[in-house]
Simulated assay, not measured.
Amino acid sequence: MKTNWMRMTVSALAICASSSLAFGQGMDELIAAAKKEGQLTTIALPHDWCGYGDIIEGFKAKYGIAVNELNPDAGSGDEIEAIKANKGNTGPQAPDVIDVGLSFGPSAKAEGLLQPYKVSTWDTIPDSAKDAEGYWYGDYYGVLSFLVNTDIVKNVPKDWPDLLSDELANSVALAGDPRVANQAIQGVFAAGLSGDKGDIAKAGEEGLKFFAELNKKGNFVPVIGKSASLAQGSTPVIIAWDYNALSWRDILKGNPAAEVVVPKTGVVAGVYVQAISAYAPHPNAAKLWMEYLYSDEGQIGWLKGYCHPIRFDDLAKNGKIPADLLAKLPPADAYAKAVFPTVEQQNANKEVISKQWDSVVGAEVAK
């Protein structure tokens, strides 16, 4: 009873304390309050991930607020545990904000670990990628793409069925083991939505059938595809998140020439979400951080790191994305058909794919 009462009390206080700009708090007042707190504590934000290094520096330069960075290499679960472990702590080990995988948003809300806040650009965030009450909201996403060594592959595949071409014998790899790695699992899931298939409930089964056919045909290479294996020619086509594929393409510097393709169908998006801790020691700095991240400036910062910002369609529609940056990306309309599976849909298909890969596809993926 005491625990439940505490959670209810924290939730109630959070609602009162986290009034968004829409509730009357002006930006000038928020900036002043955040500067008075003087610090923001983040966690699990590597500088080479999604452009976070430049984003953090941009925030500090714009507002003159120090950023205390906890454990850049932490995972989503670690972030949640950090909130739990520091409920009564206002010191430097208590995170103000988190950036976690989609499934952690709803579960953290249910545990009373988050406080609601709706940024001023709230209406431009797709409804399917945010909590209606503002407890968590999508920040950026990737879609499954094909990274293609065009020195070897002359007819670049444009959609999933193209991977079955005779020209791609011993060519196609996943960027992970689909029995355990989310990137690979989502690759199988996306294949299951390709062509005229559109039933998310059956995508896991259909994806396994597709990879069984790919394997039987001899096109599937049962190793974990990486930039090195692409360059060596052992995996001329790798199925990976577009932000990884685009980064690998840049690392290769044209040796070999590589192209990143978002398939015409079966475009599946993997979303990360932002949230403010219910126990944030610096709640106003946390709100200001969110305003910065969801501003045009912050969203383009993520895009520079090849993570598609959640407001991408809105930015593209209004001509806000620099031309030189757009030139580095697949065409903007390639993302228009992106499917954003719910947590429940992801979990259901993950169960099917990870447990039935061996029996249906029968390919032992080597590291």
Rank of each mutant, 00 (worst) to 15 (best):
M1S: 13
K2I: 03
N4A: 15
R7L: 11
M8D: 11
A12G: 15
I15K: 15
S18E: 08
S19M: 12
A22E: 14
F23S: 13
Q25G: 05
M27H: 10
E29K: 14
E29G: 10
A34M: 04
Q39K: 15
G51E: 01
A61L: 08
K62V: 01
Y63R: 05
Y63Q: 04
Y63H: 01
A66L: 09
N71L: 13
G75K: 15
G77Q: 09
E79Y: 04
E79V: 09
N89V: 00
T90M: 09
P92D: 12
V97T: 13
I98M: 13
D99R: 12
G101S: 08
S107Q: 04
E111C: 05
E111F: 05
G112K: 02
L114Q: 01
K118V: 09
S120E: 06
T121F: 11
A132D: 11
A132K: 15
W136Y: 12
G138N: 07
Y140E: 08
V143N: 13
V143K: 09
L144K: 12
L144M: 15
S145V: 10
N155T: 11
V156K: 11
P157G: 07
K158Q: 15
K158R: 12
D159F: 02
E167D: 14
L168G: 04
V172E: 01
L174K: 05
R179D: 02
A181R: 09
Q183D: 14
A190K: 04
L193Y: 01
K197Q: 13
K202A: 14
G207F: 03
A212G: 04
L214N: 03
K216F: 01
K217L: 04
P222S: 02
K226C: 00
S227C: 01
Q232A: 12
T235A: 10
V237S: 07
A240M: 09
A240Y: 01
W241Y: 15
D242N: 15
A258V: 14
A269E: 06
V271L: 05
Y272W: 13
Y279R: 01
N284T: 03
L288S: 03
M290T: 06
Y294H: 12
S295Q: 09
D296A: 12
G298P: 06
L303T: 00
G305C: 06
H308T: 14
H308C: 08
I310A: 03
L315M: 02
N318C: 04
N318I: 01
G319D: 01
K320R: 08
D324W: 10
A334D: 10
K337L: 02
V339D: 07
V339H: 12
P341L: 13
K355R: 14
Q356K: 11
V360L: 09
G362K: 05
E364T: 05
